[in-house]
Design a protein around this nucleic acid. Structure first.
Lengths: 195, 195
DNA sequence: GTCTATATCCGGATAGAC
DNA sequence: GTCTATCCGGATATAGAC
C-alpha cells in the first residue's frame, strides 16, 4: 500500500482501512463501493488511490494483516507447562483475540473467494499455519497420552470450527461474559480430547 | 416465483435455479450477474425475468427452499429410542444432508447479509428452528441425566458450528469416507455431552 | 418463451486543477 | 493531499419484435 509523505497521510490511511474493514464486514466486499468507503472517511473517491493501488489490494492487506497478527500473537504467548494446560491456553487466547476483532475475523473467512488466486493462496497459507499451531498441541498430547484423539486433523478442524462459531452469536453485553464463555469452551474442548 | 405455462418453462425454470445456486456459491451473490446466470442456462438475460421478479427473490427462494427442506427432512426422520441415540441420529442426519448439498449449505450461511431485512428475518427464523431441534435433544438428555451439559444453548451452538465446519474441508473422494466422518463426529459429539 | 435493444444507473480507476 | 470531472465498462431491469 503506497503512501506518500505529507500532511494527513497518517490519519487518512488508517481511516480508510478502518472504514473498509467495517463496511466489508457489514455488507461484503463485492457489495461495497470505493465511493462508499471514501464517503465514510470523508474524502473524495479519488483520494483512496493515494493509499491503495486498487480495491483488491485493500481487501488483501486487511486480511493479511489480520492473519499475521493472529499468528504473531499466538507465537508470542509464553507456553504454560503441560500440554493440557497449553490447550486451555490456546482456547482462551483464541477467544480473546477473536472477540476483540469481530470485523477482521468476519473478513478472514467470508471474503476468501473474493481474493485473486495469488492472494488467496497467501491467506490460505497463513490460515493453515494457524490450524497447525493447534494441531501441534493436539499431536503432542496424543503422543504423551495426555489426550485420547482418534484423528488429529479432524479434531483440529472440529475444534477450530467450534471456536470460530462463537462469533456468530456473541454480542458484547450479552447473556454470557467473555470469561464465562472461555470457561464453557475450555470445558467443551477438554472433554473432546481427554482420555 | 411467477411462472408462465408453456413450452420450456419446466426445463428453464429449474435450470435457472441450478445455475444461480452454483454461481452464487462459487463467486458470491453480489459478484454474479444476471447475464452470467443466463449465459450458463443458455438463454438471454431478459428471459430470466419470466421466472423470477428480481435477483434478490432468486437468492431468497434458493435459501428458503434449502432451509425448509432441511427442517422437513429432520422432522420426517423416525426418532430412535433413547436420547443418546437420538443425538447420534442427528449427527449422522446433519452430515448426510449437508454433504449432499454443498452449494446450498454455502449459500445458507454466507449470503445472509445480502438478503433484504424482511427476507433475512424469514431465513433466520428457519435457521433458529433448526438449532432448536438440536437444543431440544440436548435439553431432554440433560433433564433425564443422560447428558451432562453446563449450558444447553452454548453447547447447541458449539455442536452446530463443529458440524457446519465439515463443509470447509470435506471433498468427495478425499482421505475420509462419509461413514468414517460420521463415526468420528459422532464420537466427538458424544464426548462433549456425556456425563 | 426467448431474443435483441435499450433505459438508467453505478462500478473502479484516472487526470488535472488547486 | 484532496477535489472535481470523467472515461469506460457493466449492472439490473424493461420493452417490443418474433
Amino acid at each position: 500500500m503506497a503512501r506518500k509523505a505529507g500532511s494527513h497521510a497518517d490519519i487518512t490511511g488508517p481511516a480508510i482501512r478502518d472504514a473498509a474493514l467495517r463496511l466489508f464486514a457489514r455488507s461484503g466486499y463485492a457489495a461495497v463501493s470505493m465511493r462508499q468507503i471514501a464517503a465514510e472517511v470523508g474524502v473524495g473517491a479519488g483520494a483512496l488511490y493515494l493509499y491503495t493501488p486498487d480495491k483488491q489490494t485493500l481487501l488483501f492487506d486487511l486480511m493479511h494483516d489480520h492473519m499475521t497478527a493472529l499468528l504473531a500473537a499466538w507465537d508470542a504467548t509464553v507456553p504454560v507447562k503441560g500440554v493440557a494446560l497449553r490447550l486451555e491456553q490456546f482456547v482462551a487466547f483464541h477467544i480473546d483475540f477473536h472477540i476483540d476483532r469481530p470485523d477482521a475475523v468476519f473478513l478472514a473467512y467470508m471474503e476468501l473467494r473474493n481474493l485473486t488466486p495469488k492472494n488467496f493462496a497467501a491467506i490460505e497459507t497463513l490460515r493453515r499455519a494457524y490450524e497447525d499451531r493447534l494441531e501441534t498441541v493436539l499431536a503432542e498430547g496424543q503422543e504423551t497420552g495426555a489426550f485420547a484423539i482418534e484423528d488429529t486433523r479432524v479434531t483440529t478442524m472440529a475444534l477450530i470450527a467450534m471456536l470460530a462459531g462463537i462469533h456468530v452469536w456473541y454480542r458484547d453485553g450479552g447473556r454470557l461474559s467473555r470469561t464465562r464463555i472461555q470457561t464453557l469452551y475450555r470445558d467443551l474442548v477438554r472433554r473432546t480430547v481427554s482420555p
